[in-house]
Design a binder for these strands. Structure first.
Lengths: 188, 188
DNA sequence: ACCTGAACACCGTTCAAGT
DNA sequence: ACCTGAACACCGTTCAAGT
C-alpha cells in the first residue's frame, strides 16, 4: 500500500466502483462468486478488473480496508475490559469468528493465507495474529493461561471452527465449540 | 447402495476404471481436480462419468468404500486399548484427522456434508460421527469427560482443525492443536 | 496511462446419435 | 441399457486496438 502517485481520475473511479460492487456481490454470493459478474455489474470490462486486482484475493484484500481497525479495536476492548480469563477469551473469540467470516467462504481463504506470505491477504492475517497474541499475552501475564500454548495454533483452531461453521448448510452456534477451546486454554 | 440388478459388463468395467482413475487423480491433484481429466485418463466420455456419478461427491463417496471400516476399527481400537482419557483422545483424534484428509480438499468437503443430509457423503459423515460418539461415550461412562460436551461439536472442531491443516501451504503438526481440544474435554 | 471487448482455453453438463 | 463425443454455457485470463 505505498502511496505511489495518485491514480488517474477514470482509473480511480473504476477502482472504487469495482470495490463497491464486489462488496455487494460477495455479500450476495460469497467470496467464490464470478469475477465476471462483478465486472459486469460494475460496468467495466473484465480486463479493467484484472488490471486493478490481478487475483481474487487482491480484491478481497481491498474490501478489508477498514477491517483491520475493527479487529484491533475489539482485541483492545477485550483486554481493557479486564474480565476473568474465560469471559475475555469468549468475547474475543466470538468477535474473531465474526470478523473472519465477513463473507461466505472468507474464513477458509483467510485460514489458508495464514501461512502463505505470498498471499495478498497475508498482511491481514498477520494483523489478526497480532491482535490475538495481544489478548493471549495479557492473560498469560496474569498466569491465567496454561503454559505452552502457541498463539498461532490458537488462531488456527478458531479459524477452523469458523470455517466449518461458515461452510455448513445449517446455522450453527459457535459458542459451545469455543467453550471447549477456552476450557483447554485457561488454568482453573 | 441397494444391490439392484447387476451392471452390464461394459458398464461395470467403466465404473471400476473411473473409480480407479479418480483415486489416482484425486491423490495427485486433490478433490477439486477436473472431472474431465478423470474421464479422459480413464478412457471414457464425459457423459459416462456423469451417468455413473452425477456429482463430484458421488464419486468421492465411491472412493471411500472401505474407508468406513477403517474408521470404525480405529475407534474400537482406541476404546479397547483402555488408556487414560488424554491418550485415548489423542490417538483417536489423530486417526480422525488422518481419515478425514484422505485427499487434499477432502476435509472441507466432509465437514460441509456433516449437516447436509442431501449430500452423497452424508452417510460417511454419520459413520464418522458414530465412531466418534463411541469413543466419547466410553470416556464419559468412566467420568473422565467434562459434562455437557456435544459429540457432534467435537467432531466439528476436529474437522475444522483438519480442514485448516489440509488447506495450509506448509506442513503443520496437528498435535499441539489437538492437545488444546483434549485439555478442554477431559476432567483433571 | 488506462479502458474495452473480442478471443482463447478450460471446465461442467446435456443430449442426440449410435451400438 | 449403455456409451460416445459434439455442443452449450460459463468462467478466468490475455491482449490488440483504441482513447
Amino acid at each position: 500500500m505505498p502511496a505511489g502517485r495518485p491514480m488517474r481520475a477514470d482509473a480511480r473511479r473504476n477502482y472504487d466502483k469495482i470495490v463497491a460492487t464486489a462488496r455487494v456481490v460477495f455479500a450476495e454470493r460469497g467470496t467464490d462468486c464470478s469475477l465476471d459478474e462483478i465486472a459486469r455489474r460494475a460496468g467495466v470490462g473484465p480486463g479493467t478488473l484484472y488490471r486493478h486486482f490481478p487475483t481474487r484475493e487482491a480484491l478481497v484484500d481491498a474490501l478489508m480496508k477498514d477491517w483491520a481497525g475493527r479487529v484491533v479495536r475489539d482485541a483492545e476492548a477485550a483486554v481493557t475490559a479486564d474480565l476473568p480469563a474465560r469471559a475475555t477469551l469468549m468475547t474475543w473469540f466470538e468477535s474473531f469468528v465474526e470478523h473472519i467470516t465477513l463473507h461466505r467462504g472468507a474464513a477458509a481463504k483467510l485460514c489458508a493465507a495464514m501461512d502463505d506470505p505470498s498471499s495478498p491477504i497475508f498482511g491481514k492475517c498477520q494483523i489478526m495474529g497480532e491482535a490475538n497474541r495481544r489478548v493471549l499475552d495479557h492473560l498469560e501475564a496474569r498466569g491465567e493461561l496454561r503454559p505452552g500454548v502457541d498463539a498461532q495454533n490458537v488462531m488456527r483452531i478458531i479459524g477452523g471452527i469458523a470455517s466449518v461453521t461458515d461452510s455448513s448448510r445449517v446455522d450453527l452456534d459457535v459458542r459451545p465449540m469455543l467453550e471447549v477451546v477456552v476450557d483447554g486454554l485457561v488454568t482453573d
